[in-house]
Design a protein around this nucleic acid. Structure first.
Lengths: 229, 229
DNA sequence: AAAGCTTCCTGGACGCTGTACAGAATTTGT
DNA sequence: ACAAATTCTGTACAGCGTCCAGGAAGCTTT
C-alpha cells in the first residue's frame, strides 16, 4: 500500500514537484514582492534552468494561478464550519482567518485579485459561506448576495491594507504601520481638509484589526438587523 | 493676461505635455491592458523616443501614479456634494459615479489598488465623504470608520468586477458578462456544492449594478439602522 | 538484451521591458 | 557672441517570459 501504484511514465525522473516550485515562488514573493517572483528566480531557487519550469506549468500565469489556489486552500479548514456556534462568530472567525493568511503573503494579494478567483478552493470557500448564511436564516438569494458582499469586504480590506505598504517584503507589525500613517496624516492641512485633519487618528487606524472588525460588524448588522433596545 | 507670465526656462521647447503622456498611457491601457502601457508604447504613441518620457516623469511608477491621480480627479465633481439631498442618495450617487468612471478603464483599476491612494485627489474624495457622513449625523470617529468601510466596498467591488474580465480591453456590457458567468456557474456540480449550484443565478449577477447597490444599501443600513415598522 | 519511444532538462536565442549614459540640438540669460 | 541650461535621440545593458533543438534518462516493446 506504500507503493504509489502510479504506472510511472517514461522518461527520466522529475527533479522537482509542482509544490516545490510553488514553495519557491511564494518565498520569493514574500521576500522581494511580485517582481522577485520571476521564472528565472524560481528556477534558480530550485536549482534548475529557467525553462525547466515549463515542464510543470504551461506558463507563468499558471504558476500564479496555482499559487493563489493553494493559498485559498490553506484557509479551507473548518474553523468556521462549526455549526454549533453563533453565525456571527463564525463569519468573524472566517474573516480573521482569511486576513491573517493572506496578509502574511502581501505580494500574493495583488496576484489574487488580479484575476478571477474561480478555482475549486474558491468555490469551496463560497459554498461554506453560503451554508453559513443559510444557517443564519437568510433565504438563498439574500444569502448569496450577502456572501459576495462579505467577500468584497474581506478581499477589498486586505488589498487596501497591503497596498499601503510602501516596500516589498513582509508587512511590518500593525502598530508600526499605524504610527507611520499617523505621522503622514498629521500633516493634513486643516484649512483645506478640516474633516480629514480632525479624523487623522482614525484614518491612521484604517488598516487596523479594530477597523476591520468594526466594518465587518456594520455589514453583518446591515444584513441581519440586530434588535434594538 | 493671456501671457503665461512664466519665465520660460532655457533649452528647446518641450514637444509634449505631461497630460499628453497620460492620455497616451490611458488609451494604451484601455486598448490592451496593463502590459500594453509600456514606456516604449507610450513614447511611440506620442511620437518621441522611449527615453524622452523621462523628461516628464522620473520613472514609470510616476506615470502610473499621476494617471491614477487624474482618474480620481475626474470624480471629484460635486454631484454628491449637494447637501440638500438625503445623505443616502448622495452616497449612492458617489458610489455609482466612481464605479462608472473606474470600470470604464479596467486596466487602470489594478494600478489603482496596487499602491497607496494618497494623492491630493484621493484626500479630497475622503474629505467630501467625511463631510457627507457628518451631515448624516455620525460623530467624527464613526464617520471616518464608515467612510473607510465605504471606500473598501467601492474599490473592492470594482476590483473584483474587472478581475472577472478574462481579457484586456474595455469591459463587455454588463448583461453579456452576466450571461457568461451564468454559463460557467451552471456547470457547478450540485452534489459537491449544493448551495453554490442553487445560487448560480445570483452568483452570475455578483458583478451587476443591482448587486452593487444591494450591498451598498446593506452597508448603509449597518452604519445607520433604518427604522423598522 | 536490444531497440524504440517518451519524457525531462539544458544551452542558446528572440523580442520585449525599464532605464542609464553620451552627445547633438535648441533656447535663454549674460 | 558666448555660456548655461534644457530637451530629445542613439545606443546600450540587464532582466524578463518563452520558444526551439538536442542530449540524457528511463519505461515498453520486441
Amino acid at each position: 500500500m506504500s507503493a504509489p501504484a502510479v504506472p510511472r511514465r517514461r522518461g527520466p525522473r522529475r527533479a522537482l514537484t509542482e509544490d516545490e516550485i510553488l514553495d519557491a515562488a511564494l518565498s520569493l514573493l514574500d521576500d522581494g514582492g511580485p517582481d522577485a517572483a520571476s521564472v528565472r528566480g524560481i528556477a534558480a531557487r530550485v536549482g534548475v534552468a529557467p525553462n525547466a519550469v515549463y515542464t510543470y506549468f504551461p506558463d507563468k500565469a499558471a504558476v500564479v494561478k496555482a499559487l493563489v489556489e493553494r493559498l485559498l486552500g490553506e484557509v479551507d479548514h473548518d474553523v468556521f464550519a462549526d455549526r454549533g456556534r453563533p453565525w456571527r462568530e463564525r463569519v468573524e472567525a472566517l474573516a480573521l482567518d482569511l486576513r491573517a493568511h493572506l496578509s502574511a503573503h502581501p505580494g500574493a494579494v495583488g496576484l489574487m485579485i488580479g484575476g478571477p478567483m474561480d478555482g475549486p478552493h474558491a468555490l469551496a470557500l463560497n459554498e461554506r459561506l453560503l451554508q453559513l448564511l443559510a444557517d443564519a436564516g437568510l433565504d438563498p438569494t439574500d444569502g448569496a448576495r450577502a456572501s459576495y458582499l462579505l467577500i468584497v469586504y474581506v478581499f477589498g480590506s486586505i488589498a487596501l491594507e497591503v497596498a499601503d505598504a510602501h516596500q516589498p517584503g513582509p508587512l511590518p507589525p500593525e502598530s508600526e504601520r499605524i504610527t507611520g500613517r499617523h505621522l503622514t496624516f498629521s500633516a493634513t492641512p486643516s484649512d483645506a481638509f478640516p474633516h480629514s485633519a480632525a479624523a487623522a487618528r482614525t484614518m491612521a487606524e484604517y488598516i487596523s484589526t479594530d477597523q476591520y472588525l468594526w466594518g465587518l460588524r456594520r455589514i453583518l448588522d446591515g444584513i441581519v438587523p440586530r434588535d434594538r433596545d
